[in-house]
Amino acid sequence: MNERLTPGTVALLLIPPVLWASNAVVGRAVVHLVPPLTLNFLRWAVALLLLLPLGYRVLRPGSDIWRQWPRYALLGLLGVGLYNSLQYLALHTSSPINVTLVMASIPVWMLIVGRVFHGVAIRPGQVVGSVLSLAGVATVLSHGEWTQLWSLHFVPGDLLMVLATFIWAVYSWQLTRVPADAPVRAHWAGFLLGQILYGAAWSGLFAALEWGLTDWHVVWGWQLALTVAFVAIGPAVIAFRCWGAGVQRVGPTLAGFFNNLTPLIAALLSLALLGERPHPHHAVAFLLIIGGIVLSSRRKAA
C-alpha cells in the first residue's frame, strides 16, 4: 500500500464524494415514495444484477466468496447493509447538508479505528489535516460567518449518521485485510460482487423487517425507477469500485479525507438546483479541505 497521491488516485477518490453527495440529495427527494430500508434493498439488488455478467466467475464452487464467507458477509453487512440503510433512514429526519456534514467526521473515525483496532500510529500531519478539513466543512455550513454555527440544530437522523460513519470506518479498514494477491481480487467486479451478494441478503432482511414492523408503502412509478437506477449505478457500483481501489492504494485514513468534499459538493448541488451561484466562502472551504488532504498525505520526515 503506497500513501503517495498520484493524479490517477486523486481521480479515483474524487468520484465517490461527488456520487455520494448526489445520493444524499436524491435520497432526500424520494422519502415520500419509498421506505429507506426498502430503497437500500432495491438499490443493491439492481447493483447485483448489473455486476453478475462482469463478476460471475467468483460465484463458482471453491471461490474465496464461499470458503471465506464470514469475511465477505461482514463486509456486506458493514458497507452495504448497515451503512447505506442508516444513511437513507437518516434522510427522513435530516437534510442532505447535515447528513454529509456528519460524514465529514469519517477521517477522524478512520484515525481512531486504525489506532485502536489495527495499531496504526496517528501522525501530527493527519491531526492538522483533520482540523483543516473540518474547518472547510464548517465554512460551508456557516456561509463564511462562523457565528452562524451556533444556530445549527441536529436531529435524530444526524445521530444515525454518526453511527453510520463509524461503521464505514470499520468497513474501510476491513477492506485492507483482504490480501492484495487473493484470487477474488483479480477482478474488481468479482470482489465487489462478493460483498454485494451478502450485502443484498442483509438488506433484504432489513427491508422485510421494515415491512413487517411499519406501515410504510412504495409509490411505484418512473420517478422511483429512475432513482433506483441512478443510486444503483452511480453511488453503488461506480463509487464503491473507486473507493475500494483508492483505499487499496493509499489506505483508509488518507482516503477518508476525500469524504470531506462531500458536504461541499452537496451544498453546490443544492445551490445549482436553486439557480444560485457559488460564493467566495465555497472557494475558501475548498482550499481548506484540499489543504487538509495534502497535509495528511505527507509522509513523516525521517
Rank of each mutant, 00 (worst) to 15 (best):
His279Pro: 09
Val113Tyr: 00
Arg71Met: 14
Pro156Met: 15
Ile65Thr: 11
Leu14Tyr: 11
Val80Phe: 08
Asp215Glu: 13
Val228Phe: 11
Pro263Gln: 08
Tyr83Lys: 01
Asp64Glu: 15
Ala138His: 07
Val120Asp: 14
Leu213Trp: 13
His153Ile: 15
Ser133Asp: 06
Leu39Ala: 10
Tyr88Phe: 12
Leu51Pro: 00
Trp222Val: 15
His187Val: 11
Ala164Met: 11
Val80Thr: 07
Leu197Gln: 04
Leu74Met: 15
Arg298Trp: 04
Ile65Gln: 10
Leu264Gln: 00
Ile97Gly: 00
Trp69Gly: 12
Ile196Thr: 02
Gly144Pro: 00
Val219Ser: 10
Tyr171Ile: 12
Ala301Leu: 13
Met1Trp: 10
Leu160His: 03
Ala164Cys: 13
Ser296Phe: 01
Thr262Trp: 02
Arg185Thr: 08
Asn23Cys: 06
Trp202Val: 04
Gln148Gly: 12
Phe257Gln: 03
Trp202Gln: 03
Val25Asp: 00
Arg185Cys: 06
Pro61Met: 15
Leu287Gln: 09
Ala169Ile: 08
Gln126Ala: 13
Ala201Glu: 03
Gly81Leu: 10
Gly256Glu: 01
Leu51Arg: 03
Tyr198Asn: 07
Gly246Lys: 13
Leu59Tyr: 03
Trp150Phe: 14
Gln195Ala: 08
Ser22Arg: 03
Ala201Asn: 03
Glu3Asn: 09
Val102Arg: 00
Val25Pro: 00
Ser151Cys: 13
Val218Ser: 04
Leu269Arg: 08
Val102Tyr: 02
Gly125Trp: 07
Phe191Asp: 12
Trp44Thr: 10
Val58Arg: 03
Pro35Tyr: 03
Phe41Ile: 13
Lys300Tyr: 10
Leu160Ser: 05
Ser297Ala: 11
Gln195Thr: 03
Pro280Leu: 15
Pro35Lys: 08
Leu14Val: 09
Gly244Asn: 14
Leu192Phe: 06
Glu276Cys: 11
Val120Glu: 14
Leu224Thr: 09
Leu13Ala: 05
Thr262Gln: 02
Met103Ala: 09
Leu78Lys: 08
